[in-house]
Simulated assay, not measured.
Amino acid sequence: MWTRAELKSRGKESIKRNYWIVVLVALVAGIINGQLTGNASYRGMKNEIENAGWDGGTMDLLTSPQFLVILTALLGILVVFFVGFTLIKIFVGNPLLVGCNRFFVENSDRKARFGLLGMAFQGGNYSNIVLTMFLRNLFVWLWTLLLIIPGIVKSYSYSMIPYILAENPSISRERAFEISRKMMDGQKFDAFVLDLSFIGWMILSAFTCGILDIFYVVPYRQTTWAELYKVNREMALQNGIASPEELRGFPFYQ
């Protein structure tokens, strides 16, 4: 069984091994996962609105036909951007995330290549990766719609799927889900606490406008989670959860 201290210690070593490439790959993964700290200021928005003169006297303008036309157009633009962003995430972001995870696991034992980010677009398994990752995100989202807590639980239950796909891009989506669930059986709360252990760093990063996120916090979390996958991988093989043909290893395992 793993401990947070062991995983985080090995994660730090992975960062030191290939620092600037790790930072760059973590930046890509952080953007895709939305892990970079946001720093929007309500007070600043309030001041901007007040300075622009938006007070009670503008209600006539807000209810005018011209304003409604403009509002409808803006909403339409937002919908187009949302749909476009979603499609980019499905067909580009998720495959890149699988490549990022491949990089982090390989970099655990040796300096990995930045080019590993594109592994999902090679080898003829692109469609399987896209569909499996899409279903993973969809199922988590649907569980979250029911209740927040089940959505969080499912997100941890399916958290190993991108790593499994990184190791075996041709694995069936049914087996990817099954192996991930069994890997995380009894570990979801521990993984949640592992994430909580980074909160102090996240708070500190907020005071640096997210700079610390880019250069340390997100790489630290990504490399630590790669170490968690390595532990779960070995346990899955030892306990018969997955076969050597399914988790066939990365180059450094051979």
Rank of each mutant, 00 (worst) to 15 (best):
R17T: 04
N18F: 05
Y19L: 15
Y19K: 14
W20P: 01
W20K: 12
W20V: 12
V23D: 04
V25H: 08
V25R: 08
V25L: 11
V25I: 15
V25N: 12
A26I: 11
A26E: 02
V28Q: 07
G30C: 10
I31A: 11
I31G: 05
I31R: 00
I31C: 08
I32Q: 00
G34F: 07
Q35A: 15
Q35R: 06
Q35P: 00
L36R: 01
L36N: 03
L36V: 15
T37Q: 10
G38P: 01
G38W: 07
N39K: 10
N39E: 06
S41I: 09
S41C: 05
Y42C: 01
G44K: 14
K46M: 10
N47K: 13
N47S: 13
E48P: 00
I49C: 06
I49T: 15
I49G: 10
I49S: 14
E50R: 13
E50I: 09
E50N: 13
E50C: 04
E50W: 04
N51S: 14
N51K: 11
G53I: 01
G53F: 07
G56Y: 09
G57D: 14
G57M: 04
G57I: 02
G57A: 11
T58D: 14
D60G: 12
D60C: 00
L61T: 10
T63I: 00
T63D: 13
S64W: 03
S64K: 08
Q66D: 13
F67E: 11
F67I: 01
V69N: 13
V69I: 14
V69Y: 13
V69L: 13
I70Q: 09
I70C: 04
T72L: 15
T72N: 09
T72I: 09
G76D: 07
G76R: 12
I77A: 14
I77Y: 10
L78Y: 11
L78R: 05
L78S: 13
L78Q: 10
V79Y: 13
V79D: 02
V79T: 05
V80W: 11
F81L: 15
F82W: 10
F82P: 00
F85I: 06
L87H: 02
L87Q: 03
I88Y: 14
K89F: 09
K89S: 12
K89Q: 14
I90S: 02
I90V: 14
F91C: 04
F91N: 08
V92I: 15
V92Y: 09
N94M: 12
P95L: 04
L96V: 04
L97N: 00
L97Q: 03
L97F: 07
V98Q: 04
V98N: 05
V98W: 03
G99V: 02
G99R: 00
C100Q: 00
C100I: 01
C100F: 05
N101F: 10
F104K: 04
F104P: 02
V105K: 03
S108Q: 12
D109A: 15
D109I: 08
R110W: 05
R110K: 14
K111Y: 00
K111I: 06
K111H: 02
A112V: 01
A112P: 01
R113W: 01
R113S: 15
R113C: 02
F114E: 01
F114V: 01
G115R: 07
L116K: 10
L116N: 12
L117N: 02
L117E: 03
G118R: 04
M119Q: 09
A120I: 01
A120R: 02
A120D: 06
F121S: 08
Q122I: 11
Q122Y: 08
G123K: 01
G124W: 09
N125G: 07
Y126E: 07
Y126R: 06
